[in-house]
Lab assay of single mutants.
Amino acid sequence: SISSRVKSKRIQLGLNQAELAQKVGTTQQSIEQLENGKTKRPRFLPELASALGVSVDWLLN
């Protein structure tokens, strides 16, 4: 799922939720909701993929 991929990649990069949120241009709460499965397809998906160094396709599939 996107939530597990985001969380595992974030941890692999040594980032906390607030640091990832800053790179993406969103809030820590938005990252938390995404990782908890409350958000399925965030509006900041391209920025998120870029910050994590992955493709949008990788996040979604």
Rank of each mutant, 00 (worst) to 15 (best):
R5L: 06
N36I: 09
V24L: 08
E19N: 06
K23E: 07
R10G: 00
P46E: 12
N61Q: 12
Q29P: 07
S50F: 14
S8C: 15
S4R: 10
S55Q: 07
S3C: 10
N36P: 01
E19V: 06
L34N: 02
P42H: 09
Q28P: 11
L52S: 02
Q22H: 14
L45M: 08
A49K: 00
S50P: 02
Q12T: 09
N61T: 11
A51H: 05
K23T: 07
W58Y: 09
R10L: 02
N61M: 11
K9I: 11
T26V: 15
D57Q: 13
T27K: 07
G37T: 04
Q17Y: 08
S1L: 11
I11R: 09
L52M: 05
R10V: 02
V56I: 15
N16G: 11
I2C: 08
Q17G: 05
S1G: 11
L45K: 00
R43T: 15
N36D: 10
L60N: 08
E35W: 02
T27P: 05
L15I: 09
G53M: 08
W58A: 03
R5I: 08
I11M: 13
N16W: 03
Q33C: 11
L15H: 03
S8N: 13
S4Q: 15
V24R: 00
Q12H: 09
Q29A: 13
A49P: 00
L13A: 07
R43M: 13
S55T: 15
L13I: 08
I2S: 04
S55W: 04
K40P: 13
T39F: 12
Q28T: 14
N16S: 15
L52F: 05
S50W: 13
I2D: 02
A51F: 08
L60G: 05
I31T: 01
S4Y: 12
N16E: 09
L52P: 00
G53D: 09
I11W: 06
S30F: 14
Q12P: 01
G25Q: 06
E47S: 10
T27D: 11
L52W: 00
P42E: 04
G25L: 04
N36F: 07
Q33E: 15
Q28F: 09
K38I: 15
L20C: 03
N36V: 09
R43F: 12
L45E: 02
K23S: 08
G14M: 07
Q28V: 15
G53W: 04
V54G: 03
S1Q: 10
G14D: 05
Q28W: 12
R43D: 15
A49M: 03
E19M: 08
F44K: 06
T39H: 10
K38E: 14
Q33Y: 12
V56T: 09
I11N: 08
D57T: 11
K7M: 09
Q17C: 10
E32Y: 09
G14A: 06
W58F: 07
Q22C: 10
V6S: 05
E19D: 11
V24Y: 01
G14K: 08
D57A: 11
N36Y: 07
L20F: 04
T26I: 11
G37W: 04
A21V: 00
T39I: 15
A49Q: 01
V56C: 07
S3D: 06
R43V: 14
R41W: 15
L52T: 00
D57C: 09
I2F: 13
R5K: 12
T39W: 12
L34M: 06
L20Q: 02
L20D: 02
V24M: 06
L13Q: 07
V24N: 03
R5E: 02
N16H: 07
T26K: 06
R5S: 05
Q17I: 14
I31F: 02
S4H: 14
Q12N: 07
R5H: 04
S8A: 14
E19I: 06
K9V: 10
